[in-house]
Amino acid sequence: MHDATLFLTHEEARDPEISSKLDGEYPAVDAEGQTYLDGHTVYFGTAADLIEEQNEDVAVDEREISTSRPKSLVPRAIDFYADVSTDPGFIGVSSVSKGEWFVKRVAAQTGVNVKETRIDVDAFAEYIREQTETADAWNVSHSRDYGGGKEKTSIDYHDAADIESARDGTIGLGFEYMWNDAFVDGVIYESGYVANYSNGLLEEGFALWVREEVLPFLEIDLGDEESSEQTTLTEDEKDRAEVAATDGGDDDGE
């Protein structure tokens, strides 16, 4: 299984390469690239850094129970998939909470602008219906706004799910279809999350599938005011991210 929450990138990258940084210290990036006949290189791999987490400590004595929430830095790793060579492009991380630093690092390193995204699931469903007769659905989730604050969400699973019903407000789709002579089985959600469960699809195949099949349906999430706060770097963050991206100017570029 491969999965990622996607971010949409804009602007022409200064250099679209995502390089490794393996020097025994955090942050660390182990990146691989796969170049295809059309000249595109998709990158994938693992990245790790120290992430600030908050725990709850409890102390009990004869008079009271007291609690505190100390913060600590804990090493955490994420998988990533990316191609910022086009405008738009994408960066995907397997955990946003553990991988936001990596999204900012790639933005600083390559010079692209990163935005949170939503996926037009209705359009994706229509695309796979038109592209192949093998398209099927095992999960169709709808959300319909009836006005006046009234909204209805429905989910159909397995035999009750129908690829033809994936229209007019689809927010989640569990799908199956043939792509590039390979069987793909996965889920896609309006929130920007995608996953693929196909056993034969390797990391580079998943990254290519996202670029070719999902990227055309990514849109900037204009309704989320927090998105710009989360993905826009302050000047201090830019400075620190640039230093992390260049790693102090190692001779080998890692």
Rank of each mutant, 00 (worst) to 15 (best):
S95H: 08
G169M: 07
D122H: 02
G186N: 08
P216H: 06
I155V: 14
L218C: 06
K238C: 03
D185I: 13
L208H: 07
I163N: 00
M1C: 06
E229S: 10
P75S: 13
G92E: 15
A48R: 12
R240G: 09
V93W: 09
A108R: 14
T41Q: 04
T9C: 01
S165H: 14
D49L: 01
E100D: 09
P16D: 06
R118N: 13
W179Y: 06
L6I: 04
V194E: 08
D162K: 14
R129V: 01
V214F: 07
I163D: 01
I188Y: 02
S165I: 13
N196K: 04
V60F: 14
V84G: 04
E62R: 14
N199E: 12
S72M: 09
S97M: 02
E204D: 14
G200M: 08
L233C: 08
H2C: 01
Q34L: 00
G24P: 09
Y146I: 11
D120N: 15
V93P: 14
V74Q: 10
E25H: 02
L215K: 03
Y157L: 11
T5A: 11
Y36V: 03
Y157D: 10
G172F: 09
S227H: 12
W209Y: 14
S191V: 07
R63F: 07
I51K: 02
E116K: 15
S85M: 04
E235C: 00
A182Q: 15
W209S: 05
E219Y: 05
